[in-house]
Simulated assay, not measured.
Amino acid sequence: MVPVDLLVTGASGRLGPSLVQALHRDGDRLRQLSRRGTGPDAVRGDLATGADLPAALAGAEVVVHAASDPRNAWAVDVAGTRRLVQSVDRGRLQHLVYVSIVGVDRIPWSYYRAKYATEQVLLASGLPVTIVRVTQFHGFVDELLATARKGPVLPVPMGWRVQPVDVADAARYLAGVARQAPSGAIVDFGGPEELAVADLARMWAAAREPGAHVVSTPFPGRLSSALRDGAALPIGGERGQRSYADHLAA
């Protein structure tokens, strides 16, 4: 196969290491964008300010854009992606894959609104793009449940439905999309099974915190209503193989 010049943003995040591993192929040039530009295969570039972005993106034929900052999403995700669009080498770029989240168009939360706005920036950019919306990763679910536990009680929202996915499954799928021609479309990728949050919490408690007692609690508001109505569930698209139970058993 013809060698490709790849660049990954967000390589140090939750998805990044698995994504870099899945993308790696002998003969390719694979670079990882970071603010400091330190470490193997790293190049310096700052989405928040635009510093060094044109040099970092020079020659990139495939860009997998996974960088995100929930604490500063409008500056980093939205404005940062505009800077990336302005800096990319349009004469060389063959495909830009953006990693988004399932439900950004249906869940009324500020961070999700920013991710949705970022999608619109890319769709309007004229670049060869594919947007992949991914459900929540297993490890992130673990962290949320550990944070929610209050002593022996683990309160969870009543009726919420989710479909968490293994990070390595998502990375392999994204790497496959990156090697394909751009679709110009939005596609979903999720885990193998839909779960009620209460059932998921009971599985987690049994495996990790046997003393925790799961209590389903009604949560009011539009966000809760959206999650009860399945806004966090993928619509179509492919599915990962590794279940949340597999993750807990590992």
Score class of each variant (00 low, 15 high):
132 V>F: 07
229 D>K: 14
71 R>K: 15
24 H>Y: 11
72 N>V: 04
142 D>A: 12
236 G>M: 07
213 H>C: 12
95 H>A: 15
151 G>I: 05
190 G>F: 06
163 Q>C: 15
131 I>E: 03
70 P>T: 09
203 M>K: 05
141 V>S: 00
12 S>T: 15
28 D>Q: 09
61 E>G: 13
219 F>D: 00
175 A>S: 11
11 A>Y: 00
202 R>G: 15
54 P>D: 08
136 Q>F: 04
195 L>K: 08
184 G>L: 10
126 G>Q: 08
139 G>Q: 14
37 G>L: 12
241 Q>V: 13
5 D>H: 12
187 V>I: 14
115 K>P: 05
194 E>A: 12
169 D>E: 05
104 V>G: 10
29 R>W: 00
174 L>Y: 07
198 A>P: 01
84 L>Q: 10
49 T>M: 08
60 A>S: 14
192 P>D: 05
207 A>C: 00
169 D>N: 07
150 K>W: 02
4 V>D: 08
211 G>Q: 08
49 T>R: 03
95 H>G: 15
41 D>R: 14
114 A>H: 00
81 T>V: 13
4 V>H: 01
231 A>V: 05
198 A>V: 08
218 P>M: 12
205 A>I: 08
220 P>D: 07
30 L>H: 02
178 A>Y: 07
244 Y>S: 05
112 Y>G: 04
100 S>W: 11
134 V>F: 10
198 A>E: 13
85 V>I: 15
192 P>M: 04
119 E>Y: 08
57 L>E: 11
222 R>V: 10
136 Q>T: 09
249 A>D: 14
9 T>S: 13
150 K>E: 09
34 S>T: 15
86 Q>E: 15
154 L>W: 06
202 R>P: 13
16 G>V: 02
43 V>A: 12
1 M>Y: 01
117 A>M: 07
73 A>Y: 03
134 V>T: 15
94 Q>R: 15
153 V>R: 01
176 G>T: 09
218 P>Y: 08
141 V>L: 05
144 L>T: 04
173 Y>K: 02
173 Y>C: 03
201 A>V: 06
234 P>C: 06
137 F>I: 10
116 Y>Q: 12
5 D>N: 12
74 W>A: 14
56 A>W: 01
1 M>F: 10
95 H>D: 13
124 A>Y: 03
192 P>A: 01
118 T>Q: 14
107 I>Q: 06
215 V>A: 10
87 S>M: 06
67 A>C: 11
